[in-house]
Design a protein around this nucleic acid. Sequence first.
DNA 1: CTCAATTCTTACTCTGAAGTAAGTTTACCG
DNA 2: CGGTAAACTTACTTCAGAGTAAGAATTGAG
Lengths: 233, 233
Amino acid sequence: MSDKRRRRVPRQVREQQIIDMAVQVFARRGYHPASVDEIAELAGISKPMVYLYLDSKEGLFLACLRREAERLVAAFRKAARDVGPPELRLWAGLSAFFAFVTEHRDSWVVLHRQTSELSTAITAEVARARRAVMAEVTGLVRDGIAEATGSVRLGDEEADFVAHVLVGAADSLTDWMESHPDETPERVTRRLMNMVWVGMRNVLGGEFWEPPEPPRTPEAPPSEEAGEESTEG
Amino acid sequence: MSDKRRRRVPRQVREQQIIDMAVQVFARRGYHPASVDEIAELAGISKPMVYLYLDSKEGLFLACLRREAERLVAAFRKAARDVGPPELRLWAGLSAFFAFVTEHRDSWVVLHRQTSELSTAITAEVARARRAVMAEVTGLVRDGIAEATGSVRLGDEEADFVAHVLVGAADSLTDWMESHPDETPERVTRRLMNMVWVGMRNVLGGEFWEPPEPPRTPEAPPSEEAGEESTEG
DNA sequence: CTCAATTCTTACTCTGAAGTAAGTTTACCG
DNA sequence: CGGTAAACTTACTTCAGAGTAAGAATTGAG
């Protein structure tokens, strides 16, 4: 502890420090305006070290992306693993998601809010990360539905639709939580489950909503399919 | 038509052409990597014209932002205005939202997917645009609930929560629609309404979902070292 | 036709930041 | 010790792209 005079730090450690700071700066500024100089300075070293260890700015960003995606998926999985009933696993997973996003806002921003302004290599990795998260949710949704209904099994498309709704809602609620600091991840999750899950249960149970007679639909056949929206896969 | 040789174009027209191209380029590349030169070239003029008319790159982006936000809100409002029952107005509004986002993907990307990498002036305008969209949805939700339940009136917070869920889900479903080209905005909207709206009706009617386990405190878990994640590579 | 306003261009300046060459210090191993 | 590899630095080069100066071409009014 008193040995803090060690300026020299082994590569493995320094790399993580660099990535730590890079996540912060990328989240704050975005990919392009973020300068490697600033990241290096925050990490307590000079720029060439960054290039020595991470190759390029793009490589640095990819490292951030991979590490944070891994962490998020890990948190999600770990939370859902030990719980028994699928319905609860979904709840635990979403809860962990909110907790993670609340605690590591920078990670989420880097993972999610960087659609454009990126080279193809990075775009591919972002897509991969998104798919990984989405796949976790999709799995939980499918299991949860099967359990809750006892018989209904969602097709890929349905489960994917639901997963998109949940992830999108969760993302948006991340913003909402910023203006409601008293809300905990658990409370938000419960509310979301209440809105979406109860609805899904009932829809699968046969309680549909549909627009009545369209008074003046511009271009849509009125009654093509009445209530067979859900179990088509 | 050889008469199309009119090189000179009045300012008002040229400005719109510039903004048209700017929206495309900003959406494709993101704010910083977008070059004013490229925008100018696509608009058929040279760079100084852009600066003469729009002041700066930031001014150009702000013009894009304002115009597209106005268009989206207008589409939303117009769709919802003529319909009678609030529940249907919500449906019409969301439907218009999907239709707009499907048709004008660039507009939506510029409006929504540009969180960081922006100066404070722009950030403020983005926030404004988001709030405008959110306020529309919130209004429809509140009316819809009041109508559907007959008595329940949502507080600001509740309505805002629901609006965030809907907008976030809609945004995410925009991605989903890309891999499902046969889906129409109407069908997607109906599915979303089925998931969210039916659930909300029932929740407000007293059918709650809650985790069976009594709320175990997130801050003080009993034993947290069950499954280790030592290997992170 | 003339003149003035508007539209538009060529040809710069200048800054910030990615990436690198070449060398210097520290740590550890025998 | 001494020497070697790993950790680290200073001091560049290079380039893209924002922003501008100065003036040319077009149009329309009188």
